[in-house]
Design a protein around this nucleic acid. Structure first.
Lengths: 151, 151
DNA sequence: TATTGTTATACTCTATAACTATA
DNA sequence: TATAGTTATAGAGTATAACAATA
């Protein structure tokens, strides 16, 4: 008898690399598709509303020092805004912009084209099942990363 | 109406990072757990038998120049062997060792402990479903990466 | 000429430490 | 003192180019 519980962690890393390389091969030279972590950042802001850089970094599982660079890029392109929190001037409150919503939609569309090839062996229902289950895991991880619910 | 087909690529990258960081936090200082791509490499050799570095790299979706370093590590620790193919002396045939099988099992066990936390919001059946579906995608990707079936 | 494996190298991603400004 | 954000920096991961050996 072998593993009664499967090891998913190496499999996730493996498929993440396959996906990333497929996206790179599919990209033109002047490709503006957002990279995965940009997409996730915009989704978190869209689904959970404005939040501090700290909370965003925790939800992304990204080191604070790297959140800075990520937000610099997204802010430079006008996809979000950073404003100082008047109630705690140490904090920057990050807010998604209308451009950010549109950019997210464009990139999501591009990723779906890539997925049509990578996940061709799954039926539409199976793809949806994988997406729903993994989304739940990601949402719970984001909740767990923010132990103090605001106000 | 929003996305009728989900975007999985960013989600996979996101969960891969969450998993990797959870594994790092759980590791002792003298941790010998194999990293995800080592685990996948050993699994490919176990499930598909000996193959050339080129084919292994293609199945891993890893650049040939980086396959070298990966195999150097695994060979140094005795988990696999490289032998010149007598029928084509350019090729190195990579073969899993008995130590490699044991090392894989130990690491797989460690990853399962980490997954118990990450995937706590899924039932055992749901975890199995995700694993089975993603395994199929990975297996098909590995097949597609080796377009010429040997003899 | 083309392919396999290799080396050298640059670029991206990520973590750690030290700093600043605020609390 | 402690925390949010930032900067600097080193290490890991990865891709590209050039090379040697072999076909």
């Amino acid at each position: 008898m072998v593993a009664d519980t499967p090891e998913l962690v190496p499999l996730l890393a493996h498929l993440a690399r396959i996906s990333r390389r497929a996206a790179e091969r599919a990209a033109d030279d002047d490709d503006t598709t957002l990279r995965p972590r940009h997409v996730i950042a915009l989704e978190l802001l869209r689904d959970r509303g404005p939040m501090s850089q700290r909370d965003l970094g925790a939800a992304l599982s990204l080191d604070p020092s790297n959140v800075v660079g990520l937000l610099n890029e997204l802010e430079r392109d006008g996809l979000l805004e950073r404003r100082r929190d008047p109630r705690d001037r140490r904090r920057h409150v990050v807010t998604l912009s209308a451009s950010g919503v549109r950019a997210h939609e464009r990139s999501a569309h591009r990723y779906r084209e890539i997925e049509d090839r990578i996940f061709a062996s799954l039926t539409a229902a199976e793809r949806r099942a994988v997406h729903d289950l993994l989304s739940r895991v990601a949402a719970d991880a984001a909740d767990a990363a923010r132990p103090e619910p605001r106000d």
